[in-house]
Structures are given as C-alpha cells and as structure tokens.
Design a binder for these strands. Structure first.
Lengths: 155, 155
DNA sequence: CTAATATCTAAAGTGAACTTGAGGTCAAGC
DNA sequence: GCTTGACCTCAAGTTCACTTTAGATATTAG
C-alpha cells in the first residue's frame, strides 16, 4: 500500500495555503469546517495542510468564481480521497464529473448567447412577432409551456 | 413618437407574471423594489405589469441561474427603457452588453474544461510533474505567480 | 528572553437574494 | 352578502459564503 507517503516536510501552514491560492485564511478554515479540505495539527494545535490540498483549494476557488455552489463542489470532491494524495484515477474520475457540470453550464450559456445573437441579427422589426423578444408571451396564449428563455434554466 | 402605445388590456397581474415566468411572486416584488421591473397600480392598489416585463423577468431568471448577480443584470438593463416597450435598438444594445459578459464567462469555462480534458488525456503518470495536478505549487517554487487555475478567475 | 507575527476557537456580523408571517384589502362566484 | 383566493405592506427570518472580533496561544526573528 502506501502509494505516496506524505513527506512530513511537505506540510503547509494556513498562511502559506492562503498565499499560494489567493484564498483568505478565514475561507480556508470555513472550507475545512465543511469538510472540503482537511488538515493535521501540530503540537501547538496549528493546522498543517498536505501539499495536494492546494489543488483542491484552487478548484474550489475557480468553481466559486463560475457560480458553482460549494455543495456542488462537495459532490465532485466526494470521489477524491482526502487522506492521501489522490491517484491519477481519482482525479480522472473527479475531472469527468466536474466536466459534465461545466459542459452543461456552458451549453446553457451558448444557447442564451445564440438567442441573443439571433435577436441582434434577425432583422425582425415587429416587436409583436419576434419570438425572441416576446418569449413566454406568444407561447402562453397557445396554452402550452409559456416559457422560452426559461428552458435554459435547470430542470 | 409613441412607438407602441401599451394596450391597456395588455396588463398582467403579479400572479400571471409568476405563472408565465416561473418566478415566485415574492421574487417579483423584490425585483420591483430594486427597480429591475416596474408596474402600474389598479384602483385597488394591485400591481399590473406591461407585457414586455415578461422578457425582463425571463432574462433575470436565466442570468441568476448562470450565477450572474442582480447588480450585473441591473447594469445591462440600464440601457433598456422601463416605461415603454423597448425598441429594437434598445434591446440590441442591451443584448450586446449582455453577450459580452456571457462570452467572457464561457471563455473561462472553456479554459477550465480544456485543462481538465488535458489532464484526463495527458497520460502524465507522475503526480509530482503534472502541471495541471499541481498548479500553484510548481510555480510557487520558481518564485513567480504561484497560481495556475487561479488565472481563470476574475481580475 | 522578548517582541512581533501567525495562528487558534467560538461567536457574531455581513451582504445578496429571497421567503415567510402577520394583519389587512380586493374581486369573483354562489 | 359572504366566502374564497389573490393581492397588499412591512418587518423579520433564512441560506449561502464568508469576514470580523475577541481573547488566548504558538512560532519565529533578533
């Protein structure tokens, strides 16, 4: 066993983690409280993070920036071990799950962009007739779904 | 002037707005309090929304779903008149501003996806060497920027 | 050893985006 | 005319993602 025994020297203080990831110390403690990252303690009760936690923190930070909730991040991280440096397979699996979410998100963005582009270029001068400018409206009167742009939101 | 005088019959109650957009009544009231949408009042003080407010609400809802703040939505909406049905030019302008934001967001997503794809396919078996798996880390020791994935976050 | 800096915990505070609740009004159907 | 359901206002409550504060302890530089 023991794939990559963590080098005892390879432990980072919370301040170093913060400096290297750009994430505030308080945020790191918060993430730990949620179980998104873990640490060991020194004799004096200070946190020490394994080096591979840097990657976790970076991913959390990117995700947050893209509007992904910590809960979703949690879900993705659930497939990656916390206790040891994740194996190639561990990250592969997580990457795929992650990618799926990102892709779906991107598709929604693209479809919205497409609609807006269509609107800009469509030359449709009648506000009443344009299906993009009057989304739910036109559909509502048919008794059906009533929403158009809504289709881009989550199920 | 008077491009499209709003038909008096074309006014929707808050409940109808809610049903047609899928946005909660309380949220609609909240949006109005922020000035994102406007209404007129009946004799009995009930809200009546012009039909073109449906589009606004739909856009707000999509934006929120993609993690865009109401403040950003506000900015985009600032170029679109509230009092009358927006002209083609009004929406064109707004659409472009909107699109710029969405595009930037999508680019960040694509770059992150690309990194992850690279990681899945790269065949790099050394956890220590892989620049994707050890982002800030490797760079930090060179004294430089320290972050890799962070580059995808906002400026 | 001392001073300065970093870290610790626990609890409270913050801002965004809403929702819920209380108490009251309005409009439609029977 | 009465009940029911939609609507009103205003204030307070909620969740998420943190930050701030206070008071105590640890670590490091000189």
């Amino acid at each position: 066993m023991s794939p990559v025994e963590p080098d005892p020297d390879d432990l980072l203080s919370i301040g170093e983690m913060s400096r290297r990831t750009g994430v505030a110390v308080s945020a790191l403690r918060y993430y730990e409280s949620l179980g998104l990252i873990v640490s060991v303690r020194t004799e004096g009760n200070q946190r020490r993070f394994a080096r591979h936690m840097l990657r976790r923190v970076s991913l959390i930070s990117v995700a947050r920036n893209l509007g992904v909730s910590l809960e979703s991040v949690q879900d993705v991280f659930d497939t990656v071990p916390l206790d040891r440096t994740p194996s190639h397979e561990d990250w592969q699996r997580a990457s795929r799950a992650w990618k799926k979410q990102l892709e779906e998100r991107r598709h929604r963005l693209e479809r919205l962009e497409h609609e807006l582009t269509g609107c800009i270029g469509c030359g449709c001068l009648s506000m009443k007739a344009c299906p993009v400018l009057n989304p739910g409206d036109a559909l509502a009167s048919t008794g059906a779904g009533a929403r158009r742009l809504e289709d881009y939101s989550d199920a």
